[in-house]
Each structure stands twice: as structure tokens, then as C-alpha cells.
């Protein structure tokens, strides 16, 4: 399988519910296993549930540095940006040993926070990924994906540098869904000139996928943000 070679600062964006947090958290574990020093910051100021903070315990256990608002504000639906985020961006160096993941909220509203960090981010080389799930409303085609891309870029004041297909219907995902997602992300790449960074596939489906069909790496997904009846 091809390797995902991401380091330095990686901002995860995409339309609402495209699977940014699940992708970000799994990328953190993947990169940690590869030997990188990994930090992940929860910048989701729009979504009230299913945020990175839900995976706090397992991330911390894996020695991944998790940056969150102060504990007393963990369950607030207020736009709180901890100063620790700016500090971690300042510290981050573009080298092959560290990865800082900034998990933004969905849509253009979710990346307003990225614009607020522009003073710090503009001095760095930044990877900004657009996560696409074609089975979500508003991104089922190229037109929808480009619209979201433009809105995110306008709002964040940064350019998308990489595309990620996160095609899934959770437990109902079929291999055809993954191939359909790959097809769309390739077309989007062709249209925009932005490279496909990787695609994702649940570990349960990974073994039956023909990886030779893909010219990009595949990030294996083990779902971490699950509803209470699926928690063990």
C-alpha cells in the first residue's frame, strides 16, 4: 500500500458531515504509528456533538497531543479558541518528524477560525485538505464540491492543497461506494489541478478492495466516533 506522506501543519476541511473528524483522528493514529510526533487540535466551533474531544481518552493513551478548549467549556456551544492552538502552530516546523492536525468545523462557517489564525499560519507551509463524501448532500457531484471548495478558501483565506475521498455510508458502505468516491475525487483533481492526497476505507472493507485500482494511498479507518450503543 502507498504511504501517506503528510507532515508539518495539516488543516482538515470539508462540507458539513463529510467525515473530517473521523479522518483527522485516524490520520493522527496512522501518523503516530509511522513514528511522527502528532498533535491534533479540535477547532470545531460549529458542531455540538461527535467532536475530536470525544476521542480524547484514546488519543491521549496513544501519546497523541490533543489540544482542546479548557475543560469547563468542553460542552459549550460557544466559539472558544484556546491560545494553545496559536502556540502549537508557532512551534510547528516543516520537517518529516512532526504532524500538527487542525480539525476545523464544516463548511465555510467552520473555517472562519482558520482565518482568525492567519497571522500564525501565513508564516508556515500549510497543507489544507478538502474531505469529500459523495454520499452527503451538496457534494454528490463536481459542481457541489467546487462550490464548497471556493467557499472554504474564501472564508479561511487559504488554498486547498490536497483532496481526500471519504466515500462511505457508515455500516452500509459497499466497495462500489469507495470506487465511486475515487472516481469523483479523480475528476475533481483533474478539474482543479489539486492532487488527491489519499482516500479512506473502513478496515472492515479494506481487505476486499483491489488497491491496484488506486493511484493514491488509502487511509484505513477504524471508527472512533460512534453512537453510545456501539461503544464497547
Amino acid at each position: 500500500m502507498l504511504d501517506i506522506k503528510l507532515n508539518g501543519i495539516v488543516i482538515i476541511t470539508g462540507n458539513y458531515g463529510s467525515g473530517k473528524t473521523e479522518t483527522g483522528v485516524n490520520l493522527a493514529f496512522y501518523s503516530k504509528k509511522k513514528g511522527l510526533n502528532v498533535s491534533i487540535a479540535d477547532l470545531d466551533l460549529v458542531n455540538p456533538y461527535f467532536r475530536t474531544r470525544q476521542a480524547l481518552e484514546i488519543l491521549t493513551k496513544a501519546n497523541i497531543n490533543v489540544i482542546l478548549p479548557d475543560k469547563q467549556y468542553m460542552h459549550a456551544d460557544l466559539p472558544i479558541l484556546t491560545p494553545k492552538v496559536a502556540a502549537i502552530i508557532k512551534k510547528s516546523n516543516y520537517n518529516d518528524k512532526s504532524l500538527t492536525i487542525l480539525d476545523a468545523g464544516g463548511d465555510d462557517a467552520g473555517v472562519n477560525v482558520i482565518a482568525a489564525l492567519n497571522d500564525f499560519l501565513s508564516k508556515k507551509k500549510v497543507n489544507m485538505l478538502q474531505i469529500v463524501n459523495p454520499f452527503r448532500p451538496f457534494t454528490e457531484n463536481i459542481k457541489g464540491c467546487i462550490k464548497i471548495k471556493q467557499e472554504i478558501e474564501a472564508s479561511s483565506k487559504l488554498k486547498i492543497t490536497g483532496l481526500v475521498s471519504n466515500a462511505n455510508l457508515i455500516d452500509d458502505t459497499t466497495i462500489d461506494n469507495i470506487y465511486k468516491g475515487y472516481e469523483l475525487i479523480e475528476k475533481l483533481s483533474e478539474k482543479t489541478g489539486i492532487k488527491v492526497e489519499f482516500i479512506t476505507a473502513d478496515v472492515k472493507i479494506l481487505s476486499i478492495l483491489n488497491l491496484k485500482n488506486f493511484d493514491c494511498p488509502v487511509l484505513p479507518i477504524t471508527r472512533k466516533l460512534v453512537p453510545p450503543w456501539k461503544r464497547s
Binding site: N133, F135, R136
Partner: peptide, 14 residues
């Protein structure tokens, strides 16, 4: 075909 939706969005679409 099936789509992936949040409960809130799905209620709106319904």
C-alpha cells in the same frame, strides 16, 4: 439511492 445524513438534515428533507 441511499445518502448519509444527520437526523436534523433528514428531517428537513423529509
Amino acid at each position: 439511492a441511499k445518502v448519509l445524513m444527520k437526523g436534523n438534515e433528514a428531517i428537513g428533507e423529509a
